[in-house]
Design a protein around this nucleic acid. Sequence first.
DNA 1: CGAACGATTGACGTTTCTCAAGGCTGGTGG
DNA 2: CCACCAGCCTTGAGAAACGTCAATCGTTCG
Lengths: 224, 224
Amino acid sequence: MSLPSDKITHRNSLQEFGLMRKSNSAECVSEVFFEKGTKVYGDNEPADYVYQVKTGAVRSFKLLSDGRRQIGAFHLAGDIFGVTTEKHHRFTAEAVVDTTLWLVRRQSLDLADTDGALTRELLSMTVRNLQHAESQLLLLGQKDSLEKVAAFLLEMDKRLTGTGAITLPMTRRDIADYLGLTLETVSRALARLKRKGAIGFTDATQREITLLNKQRLLVIDPQD
Amino acid sequence: MSLPSDKITHRNSLQEFGLMRKSNSAECVSEVFFEKGTKVYGDNEPADYVYQVKTGAVRSFKLLSDGRRQIGAFHLAGDIFGVTTEKHHRFTAEAVVDTTLWLVRRQSLDLADTDGALTRELLSMTVRNLQHAESQLLLLGQKDSLEKVAAFLLEMDKRLTGTGAITLPMTRRDIADYLGLTLETVSRALARLKRKGAIGFTDATQREITLLNKQRLLVIDPQD
DNA sequence: CGAACGATTGACGTTTCTCAAGGCTGGTGG
DNA sequence: CCACCAGCCTTGAGAAACGTCAATCGTTCG
């Protein structure tokens, strides 16, 4: 279900952002807290809400019957996710770390679409998702582990800060399931990048990474 | 460029299908022949037309700078492709075999979108493309070669006939670049499926394949 | 303090890739 | 008609990449 209760605190608020600008009653937007590891929504569940990350991070993934997991996207602060034209979600979404989301009832949006502006907005979001999936196809199908990890670091840097100093919210296993690798291979690829002088670790938990040489990462990661 | 000339024959015609229903002048729809291997449009070229496969097949792909190729989709008879909200294509499209396409100037569509019906149609197509890409992510990231090839055969059977008797238009290399494998690995996977009794070859060129046991293929290919 | 979690590293096994050889088919020109 | 050639497919042997299993270490948190 979409709104598990006991790990979540509700605080209604009137937030203005993205799609949710169209909402006009206070009940439409809620701020909800999800503890690390909590499910936001499940595969095949009714898509009743649209979400935006206030703080934290969310992973969106599919599972095979034997438990293999493909993470399709990470949603970071500011990202809108859970948008679909269909009745049901096609992914499961979970909080990667303690996360605060804003959410809007989808129904409150449908009503507002008199001029088709919402349909166009929906289209533009779907196109962005499609573009991300398309570049991920190239990464998963053609790149080796070093290229995948380099591309991942560059993507995260771009989306988190762009400064070259990043703090990853996700574990090595999450990264592995995003890149189609194992966590050990991700760890070894990071070690190789460190030995090459392309990156450096700046804390004990190995989640803070400095991109010492983006140019070198760009050379490792072949562009299309 | 989008309309190479000497390998192509033009025949204007008034075809009614899909998106193109909106067109109302004879100049908007053309039937164009593309010889095997011909480019339909290139990555980053202006997206001036929308296409539908009349006969034949088209591959749509991205290249890395060193020549590695990821095929994102095959377009078969009846499929509409080349639809985008942007000015330029994000893929290159080539005829896999001798192919006849119908094409419509995109401009002739834009004019017709008074009621937003076209935007909704565009949205629904983009969503279909997104869904295909999403399941391809799972395949590329998590499945081994046997599972990939089994999934490929099931997809082709479904889209070509559904009867279990298929004639593949594409080479082993095309299949490999679609599945993120090498052509040798594809060939070996097919040989293994044959030994298992799941498929059979029915002609000398190894392009006609009979799915002797779809249930067995479904077991090999884990579902989400 | 001890347990749980996440990360790293090594040794080893498996899968896939690479390189090479050979076969089959269909088309072309003598 | 036949020889030849080019393209496609298969198969094998060895190499490389990646996965698996296991041990260890540091951190966090009760």
